[in-house]
Computed example of a mutant assay.
Amino acid sequence: MTRPAQHAKGTASPEGTGDEVEVRIRGLMMDPVTNMPMIVLKEMAGEAVLPIWVGIFEANAIALEIEKSATPRPMTHDLLRNTLRAFDAIVSRVVISDLKDDTFFAVIWLDRAGDVMTMDARPSDALALAMRADCPIFVSRAVLDTARMNQKGRDVNSDELRRWLEGLGDDDMGRYKM
């Protein structure tokens, strides 16, 4: 866990730096090329789309929250949210912060009585927690740019997938649910 400086001018803060783009979870679906689950993030104020491939168990945790399905016992992300609440900590935001060797990285921003902390996380865990905490989700501008470059440098299937994702409408997401 990292504890950035308080909200003094010029220090880290959950308000962001302008180098981040707010996104929303557009859907959770099976990649038609790899048949792996992926979370589709969409830029709130633009057209950028970012697919993040996740494991089946992580996809299930997110799907349960998307569908607002109640489970008889708390799932891991519910437990984490409940623990944070018990310690009066608030998840203020999550950020998909880096992309290295085709692996995404995320940071969870926590606030406890003005004490701001960050925690390294897998994007799937950060997104599952963000949904449960009802907090904003951001992606680093550098990650969006790198993901676009990586997609352009790949084979035709990746280019087709990008065009397919960008062309999805609201009705399409419902058809491709897990």
Results as ranks from 00 to 15, higher is better:
29 M>D: 14
137 I>W: 01
57 F>K: 09
104 F>V: 01
14 P>E: 09
121 A>S: 06
107 V>L: 02
163 R>T: 12
127 L>G: 01
13 S>D: 09
155 D>A: 14
31 D>E: 12
103 T>C: 07
113 A>F: 03
72 P>L: 09
119 M>R: 00
83 T>N: 00
9 K>N: 07
128 A>K: 06
63 A>P: 07
86 A>C: 00
86 A>K: 03
166 E>N: 09
114 G>H: 05
41 L>W: 08
118 T>I: 13
165 L>F: 11
32 P>F: 05
144 L>S: 13
151 Q>H: 01
22 E>N: 11
164 W>A: 15
88 D>H: 07
40 V>K: 07
1 M>L: 13
74 P>L: 05
76 T>P: 10
175 R>F: 09
162 R>Q: 13
32 P>D: 09
177 K>P: 03
98 D>P: 05
39 I>F: 10
71 T>Q: 14
158 S>I: 07
54 V>K: 06
11 T>E: 04
82 N>E: 00
70 A>K: 11
153 G>W: 06
15 E>I: 13
22 E>S: 13
97 S>G: 10
178 M>W: 08
152 K>V: 07
22 E>A: 11
154 R>N: 08
170 D>L: 14
67 E>R: 11
46 G>K: 04
29 M>Y: 08
113 A>L: 02
139 V>E: 12
120 D>V: 01
23 V>E: 06
9 K>Y: 07
47 E>T: 08
94 V>H: 07
31 D>L: 13
12 A>M: 10
151 Q>K: 01
97 S>P: 04
89 A>C: 13
51 P>S: 05
68 K>L: 04
156 V>T: 12
44 M>H: 01
136 P>Y: 04
99 L>E: 02
107 V>F: 00
149 M>T: 08
65 E>I: 03
55 G>T: 09
135 C>S: 03
133 A>I: 09
130 A>V: 11
163 R>P: 01
134 D>M: 02
140 S>L: 09
49 V>C: 06
178 M>D: 13
124 S>E: 03
23 V>Y: 05
63 A>D: 14
25 I>E: 10
87 F>P: 05
177 K>C: 02
5 A>V: 05
9 K>L: 06
26 R>M: 10
87 F>E: 03
105 F>C: 03
116 V>Q: 09
49 V>T: 09
12 A>Q: 08
119 M>C: 06
74 P>F: 05
76 T>M: 10
142 A>T: 15
169 G>R: 15
14 P>M: 14
133 A>P: 01
162 R>P: 03
90 I>K: 13
45 A>V: 04
27 G>H: 11
144 L>P: 12
14 P>G: 12
95 V>T: 08
149 M>K: 02
9 K>F: 05
146 T>W: 04
125 D>C: 06
7 H>G: 14
